[in-house]
Simulated scan of single mutants.
Amino acid sequence: MLSIKLPQLFHSHQIPKVFREDSIISGYRRPHSSALDCVLSSFQLTNETLNIWTHFLPTWYFLWRLCALCSSMNVLSDSYTWPLLIYMLLICVYPFTSSCAHTFSSMSPESRHVCYFFDYGALSLYSLVGSVL
């Protein structure tokens, strides 16, 4: 039978300062984790688990709604639907980007900064386009 060992969790005093969050004492994943460890840690109770799943599940819901929209309307030929299509695409992208950021932020300090850069960028793009439309 397949046996998967979940990664060990740490307290805030056991990890480098760059990986710490204010007011979070325990539940940290190992710094410099592999991508597989990051994915496996999304199935255990860490300080990022809720963030990962509350962003990942809505991504699939909005993707399902986007597919339903595209199948019910001719969105490519009707230019009046383009703003809705762009908005729906961004509504799928920003929670997925956030889920990836929370999942892979413990790989290294550089990956943490890059992940959250894309997370904030996607959220800003969604906010900008949403306010214009």
Rank of each mutant, 00 (worst) to 15 (best):
G121I: 03
Y87M: 13
R29C: 07
R112D: 03
A35N: 03
V39Q: 02
D78E: 14
Q8R: 15
A68R: 14
L69D: 06
L66I: 07
T46E: 07
Q8S: 09
N47F: 14
S42L: 05
T59H: 07
Y61D: 04
T46F: 05
L76S: 06
T59A: 09
L50G: 13
S108N: 04
Q44L: 10
S108Y: 03
K5A: 11
R112A: 06
C92W: 02
L89T: 08
Q14M: 09
Y80F: 09
S105Q: 11
L9D: 02
G121V: 08
P58N: 07
I52F: 15
G130W: 00
L128G: 01
L133R: 05
R20W: 00
I52D: 07
V129C: 07
C67E: 10
I4N: 04
S98E: 02
Y94R: 00
S72F: 08
S99A: 14
L66A: 08
A101D: 02
A122N: 01
V18C: 11
L66M: 13
M1P: 07
L125Y: 01
C92M: 03
L133S: 09
S131W: 08
N47D: 06
K5S: 14
S106V: 02
F104Q: 01
I91T: 15
S77I: 04
S106G: 04
E110Y: 09
S34L: 08
G130R: 01
I91G: 01
S23Y: 15
M88Y: 10
W53I: 11
C100E: 03
C115M: 13
V129Q: 03
S111R: 11
R20I: 01
L6S: 09
S105C: 15
F117K: 09
K17D: 12
S42F: 10
Y120G: 01
S111Y: 09
F43C: 10
N47S: 14
K17E: 15
S3R: 14
H102N: 04
R30P: 00
S98V: 01
L76R: 05
R30H: 06
R30L: 09
W82R: 12
S23E: 12
C115S: 13
E110G: 08
D119Q: 10
K5M: 08
S72R: 14
R29N: 09
V93L: 12
L123V: 13
I91N: 11
N51I: 05
